[in-house]
Simulated assay, not measured.
Amino acid sequence: MSFRVDPTFRDALAASRRPLIGMWVCSGSPLVAEICAGSGLDWLLIDAEHSPNGLESLLAQLQAVRGHPVTPLVRPPIGDPVVIKQYLDLGAQNLLIPMVDTAEQAAAAVRAIEYPPRGIRGVGSALARGSRWNRVPDYLHTARETIALYLQIESAEAVADVEAIASTPGIDGIFIGPSDLAASMGVLGEQDHPEVVAAVEHCLRAAAAAGVKAGLNAFAPALARRYLTAGADFILVGADVQLLARGSERLAADYIEEAV
Rank of each mutant, 00 (worst) to 15 (best):
V5M: 00
D6L: 05
A12H: 11
L13N: 02
A14T: 04
P19E: 10
P19K: 10
P19H: 08
I21W: 07
W24Q: 00
V25D: 09
C26T: 14
P30N: 06
L31E: 14
V32Y: 00
A33Y: 05
A33L: 07
A33H: 06
E34G: 02
E34W: 01
C36D: 08
A37G: 08
D42M: 07
L44W: 07
H50W: 11
S57E: 11
Q61C: 00
Q63N: 09
A64F: 09
T71L: 02
L73W: 03
Q86A: 14
L88Y: 06
D89G: 10
L90S: 08
G91L: 13
Q105I: 05
A109L: 12
P116C: 11
P117F: 03
R118I: 12
R132L: 07
W133F: 14
P137R: 13
L140K: 02
H141Y: 04
T146A: 06
T146L: 00
Q152G: 01
I153H: 05
S155L: 10
V159G: 07
D161T: 06
V162Q: 08
A164G: 05
T168I: 14
P169I: 06
I176T: 12
G177A: 11
L181Y: 03
L181D: 02
G189M: 12
Q191A: 13
D192F: 02
H193I: 08
L204E: 05
A209Q: 13
G211K: 09
V212W: 01
V212R: 01
A214K: 01
N217E: 05
A218M: 08
F219K: 02
L228Y: 02
R246H: 08
S248T: 15
D254E: 07
